[in-house]
């Protein structure tokens, strides 16, 4: 019993870590490889989660637009497509402009999606959220342990597939152009590369991956509501990518598992140690800590724990301006 308990906890933990891992890989292609700053991760994750929820969920309310009861893989596909469309719109408008406009706009999209999730009852059911979402392969077994184990397999398969695909394309000429853009946009432009188009592709690819992660999350938990997609999620993903080493997909996965372990452990620790009267304060303190870790990483170890393999020389990073 004891062993089964640990095993089921471990499986549950790894499933959750895989949502973060997948999102981190998505951020990595934007931030790590292309230097795009997306502050709206929670928003893209939410779009994917809600899309899959609307597509696959049972129609339990008359006033609800969704509840099409489609097979889960179709829900995942829809999540990919819808997130890609949203990302294309945002990227098309902002990626030509100064980099901070992308940050502000992705922040805006995350806030707006929060508002839609909270208020547009016809689509998102408001604060009540979506529930009874189907979990794939769960009809195969009665045991929740087996259920989860199967779901973990799905997650691992998806991550494996995405990881393999990303590693391939990042090693291709396309990926080299991305890194060239990150290091020196003007040089890439001088090489005749359409910088905007490359950026847009990277941004859409990364955001769609986040959407897929959201869909995986929604159909595992079976219940989503607006509070699942707060700005803290965005920061968590950034911390995971930076801890893992931006520009390194394996690092993104390792960072996600490690940071999720730290997060879960601190959760249990607070529950065990802090008296119930101070639980809210402890929760706030923990969020402060996550912010602090981010800032400290930026200050003292910006290259992360597992730095990118092909590091460009310091001379390459600096622009030699004004020399005669």
């Amino acid at each position: 019993m004891e062993f089964l308990g640990i095993l089921s906890f471990l499986i549950f933990f790894l499933i959750q870590a895989s949502f973060f891992s997948l999102t981190s890989i998505g951020l990595n292609i934007q931030w790590g490889f292309t230097g795009l700053f997306n502050v709206g991760i929670a928003g893209f994750f939410a779009v994917g989660a809600y899309t899959s929820g609307i597509m696959t969920g049972p129609r339990y309310a008359e006033t609800w637009f969704g509840g099409f009861g489609l097979p889960v893989p179709l829900g995942f596909l829809a999540a990919l497509i819808v997130t890609a469309i949203v990302a294309t719109l945002i990227g098309y408008i902002t990626l030509r402009l100064r980099e901070d406009f992308l940050a502000i706009s992705t922040f805006g999209i995350a806030v707006s999606i929060q508002l839609v999730a909270n208020n547009l009852d016809e689509l998102t059911r408001g604060p009540e959220g979506l529930y009874s979402l189907p979990k794939p392969l769960s009809e195969l077994s009665e045991s929740p342990l087996v259920d989860n184990a199967l779901y973990l397999l799905i997650c691992v398969a998806v991550i494996g597939l995405v990881y393999w695909a990303f590693e391939r394309i990042l090693r291709s000429p396309w990926g080299r152009v991305l890194r060239a853009i990150r290091e020196d946009e003007h040089a890439a432009m001088a090489m005749g590369k359409n910088v905007f188009l490359f950026r847009l592709q990277a941004f859409v690819l990364g955001s769609a991956t986040m959407g897929l992660a959201g869909a995986l999350y929604a159909n595992f938990i079976g219940f989503i509501s607006p509070t699942d997609f707060l700005p803290i999620f965005t920061i968590q993903i950034f911390v995971m990518v930076i801890v893992g080493g931006s520009g390194n997909n394996l690092g993104a996965i390792v960072g996600s598992v490690v940071m999720w372990a730290v997060w879960s452990a601190s959760d249990s620790l607070i529950a065990a140690v802090v008296s119930p009267d101070f639980q809210t304060q402890a929760a706030a303190a923990r969020i402060v800590l996550i912010g602090l870790i981010l800032v400290l990483m930026l200050l003292y170890r910006p290259q992360g724990l597992l730095p990118e393999k092909h590091v460009v020389s310091a001379a390459g990073r600096m622009k030699l301006k004004g020399e005669d």
Binding site: F37, D100, A103, I232, A285
Partner: peptide, 20 residues
């Protein structure tokens, strides 16, 4: 972008310090 990200982290800290 690093500066913006640091600010984003500080923003989260600030809000939660007020909560605290």
């Amino acid at each position: 972008i690093t500066l913006i990200m640091a600010a984003f982290g500080l923003s989260l800290m600030g809000r939660n310090l007020i909560h605290l």
